[in-house]
Each structure stands twice: as C-alpha cells, then as structure tokens.
Design a protein around this nucleic acid. Structure first.
Lengths: 242, 242
DNA sequence: CGCAACATTGAACGGTATCAAGTATGGTGG
DNA sequence: CCACCATACTTGATACCGTTCAATGTTGCG
C-alpha cells in the first residue's frame, strides 16, 4: 500500500510506471509531519530530494524583521523544493500545512539513478520548471494585479493545483487560513480578510474554515485574469520526438 | 572569434570546454537585436533554446490592462528562458534591453545532444533552478520588503548578476532606466524615482543615465538585506561524487 | 468549561499610485 | 555647431490602497 501511494504520486511528474517503481524503491522510509512541523530549515545543506506522498507542504522564507513570505506550495506527488537539490542548500524553510507524509531519496542514490534513468533527471528538471512558472505568476500577481485580483487568482490556482477538486465541485477542501494566504500574497491578514469579504459580497465565493465554495467560477476567473495553462507545465513527460 | 565568444559564454553555465564546443557547434548563426526588439512573443511555441552571446535581455509579461511585469533579466552566457523550452511555450515576451546577440539551438538537435551529453541537460536544469531562485528573491522583495529595501536589493543583484563590475568598481554600467526598474519591482516609475532620490540622499548610491555608483556597498547591503549566495546557484557544475 | 486559533471589525496612519506638469539629456539632421 | 526632438528624469498635489494597532467575535477542541 505504501508502494502504491508512492507510485501514484510519481505518476504526476511524468514518469513511466517502471521508472516510478525504481524511484520508489530508492526512497527511504516515509516520515510523517504534523501541521506546522518543519522538514527543512532555510540555509540547511540539502541531503537529497523529498517526495511528498500525501498532504500539503509549503516553502517559506523568514525575514530578519519577523516577516514571512511563502514561496511555494506542494501537494502529494510533488518533488519538494527541487531547487534546494540543485543549489545544494535550502533557500527556504519547508513546513507542513496539513498532516503529511514525505519520503527522501538521498543525493548519492539519486545521482546513480539519474545516470541509468535519464527520464528521472528530466522529471526533476520539469519540477523545477513548474515551480518557476508558478513563481512567475506570483510575481505578476504581487507586482501588477490588484489585491482583489491577486487573491482571486490564488484561489483559482490553489484549488486546481492542490487538486482540491475540479472547478465543478461544489465545495472544495481548502486547508489554508487567511493568514497563510496573506503570507503567499505578501499582504496583511487583515487586508486579506477584507478582500475575502469583498469576494463574498460579490457572490464569487464562500470561504469557511477548511473549505471554499466557488459560486461563480467564470466571474472569479474573470476577476483573477486567470489562465490555468501554466499549471500544466511539467506535469507530464514531453516527448519532443513524437 | 564568433566561436570564442560562444565558448566563453557557455563557460558560465558550468560546462566543460569540450562540451561547450559541441553545444556551440549546434547553435545556429547568431542574431542581433536592437534595444527594445523582441525575440519571442508570450504564448509562442518554443522552437528551441536561446543562448545569449552578448548584451542584456529581459522577459516580461504584458497584462490585459496595459501593465507590464518583468520576470527575468539575462546577461551574456545565460540560457534565455529555459522555462519556455520545458513548457514548450513562452510564458513571457523576450526583448532586448541593450544591443544583444543570441544564438538558437533547435529543439530536435538539443534533444540529441542531451542524450549523448548528459552534462548539457544538467546545465539547462541548473539554468532553470537559478531563474527560480532569483524569482524567489523577487517574490520576497515584492511581498515583504519595503520599496526602499527592494530597490536597493535589485541594485545589488543587478550589478552582481549582470556582471556590470564587482563591488569594488567605482562606477558600474547600469543599462536599466528607472521605468524598467519599476517594471521589475512592481512599482510605479514615479515612486522608483523618489526612492532613488532617497538612496542618493542617504549617500548610498549615485545613479545617472547608464551608470550607477555605489558609494557605500556595506550600508546598501544592510538596507537591502542582501545575501548574494543565491546568485551562485547553478553557475558552475556540481559534482556530488567529489 | 476554558483555552487557542482563527476570523472580523474599526480607526488612524503611511506608503504608493495617479495625474499632470516641467526639466535635463543625448542624439540627429540641417 | 546649432536647433530640434524623443526619451528619461524630476517634482507637486491629491486620492486611494493597504498597514498597523487594538479590540471583539467565533469556532473547535481538550
């Protein structure tokens, strides 16, 4: 069953079942994380690559003045912070948002695997690329979108990317607090609250503790200026020859 | 001479000289770009990977409402927008900031090269990772740093990363206008101007048309909360076995 | 029940945008 | 060499967006 979870997870990053099995075999025994528990501390030397088997995990940067900026969200099947592997040091702290399970593949073992299975190296590259694409979208949101639009955009992205249910679902699980949304958006929690109320008043969403109902997906997308295309980057193997 | 420039350029992304030569041979004939000239339009299908041989080039996103957000800067030796190659579509428009020369390696040829030279695939992965690391820094700046600190941070980053001269140089070439800084920082050009004047008044910098004098590097770093470490990500090959 | 975490509300302040001039600066053609 | 033009930079006034501080309500859980 453990095995099955791992395989399902790796599916998402575009590896064949056979290769996924190889990778799963290389992973150490899974570790469980409670909400808020930290997996990696920023600045730490990276010892390998982490696969997220279940749950939701975030990467955030802690500033000198006490401020926090979230830099990434991960869901089951994601490679957690592939950037840290390339950089050989973590640029951010990794912490669990919901109860989660992760499995680590030590660097040395991964190096060998990538030599024999180039598709694994490609999959990790795609992971990094997807992260970069999402960061680009966040930069656009923070720089050039109104806070309303930015929060709406984040809601669209999070619901789709964390696979909390398709646009057709009536109510989505939504494990982020308003304060956590603020850490992502670079806004204050108070302001996020007011924006959420605005979106509610406009009949676009309803947001409760742990859930989100998108009442008018079309108008939300309109407000957010949301194009889901970028979420597809790297989720499946690309065969250029074909 | 053409060849020599190319080789020097690729050096920066951590390829051995022999492999650089292979890559240089695969590149098409260089294309020159005038300032403002566009190389790729956002949404376009990617046809390969571009190497920047000389000059400075930027990636920016044009919004519906006319706003512009810059997402990356490239200097000679950089792989331009490796993300577009992985995504198979450009997520941003690429345009020259200064007169530049680029050479493209068609996707099909690159695929073959990566099979025979895995170090090329690794170098491209590192390029993507470096871009992601810089985007992270920009997100932190936009989200949690004061505009003063953010602009100071950008100046540190740009001077070092675009190799406009080391911290010891008296005066750096600085080819970005205040409006371009604003497009990066997500601020208005007017406000950037006022911040620049503040930094000048504090005796940190002097900024003219095309040049930047950093009068007090230590205090500028202090204001910016700048740690150059992230700029080193991916600039040289990492041999984990060693 | 009582506590802790999350959400909401109000008031006041400050940072940033916007609009609308006006002033260098450098390049170009005459 | 000069006049002109386009681009970049500067400045001021005003309004708004978003923050901060502080307090209160609400929910769920031990």
């Amino acid at each position: 069953m453990q095995q099955a979870t791992t395989l399902h997870a790796l599916d998402a990053i575009g590896l064949s079942e056979a290769v996924s099995e190889v990778l799963a075999a290389a992973a150490g025994s899974p570790r469980s994380l409670a909400p808020g528990e930290r997996l990696v501390e920023q600045g730490e030397v990276s010892t390998g690559v982490c696969l997220l088997l279940s749950g939701i995990v975030k990467a955030c940067r802690n500033l000198r003045d006490g401020g926090v900026q979230t830099l990434a969200l991960y869901t089951s099947g994601d490679v957690v912070d592939s950037l840290a592997y390339v950089a050989r040091r973590a640029t951010a702290t990794i912490a669990a948002v919901t109860p989660s399970r992760v499995a680590e593949i030590p660097a040395a073992r991964l190096e060998l695997l990538m030599e024999t299975h180039p598709s694994i190296a490609r999959a990790l590259w795609r992971s990094t690329a997807r992260e970069a694409a999402i960061l680009q979208e966040w930069v656009v949101g923070m720089g050039r979108r109104s806070a309303h639009s930015q929060i709406a955009h984040l809601m669209c992205e999070i619901v789709l990317r964390l696979r909390l249910g398709g646009p057709n679902a009536r109510v989505h699980r939504f494990p982020l607090t308003q304060a956590e949304l603020a850490d992502i958006a670079g806004l204050s929690a108070v302001h996020v609250n007011r924006i959420v109320q605005g979106l509610r008043a406009d009949g676009l969403i309803e947001l409760g503790r742990g859930w989100l109902r998108i009442q008018d997906w079309d108008r939300l997308i309109e407000v957010a200026d949301f194009d889901p295309w970028y979420l597809g980057i790297g989720v499946q193997a690309v065969d250029r020859a074909g």
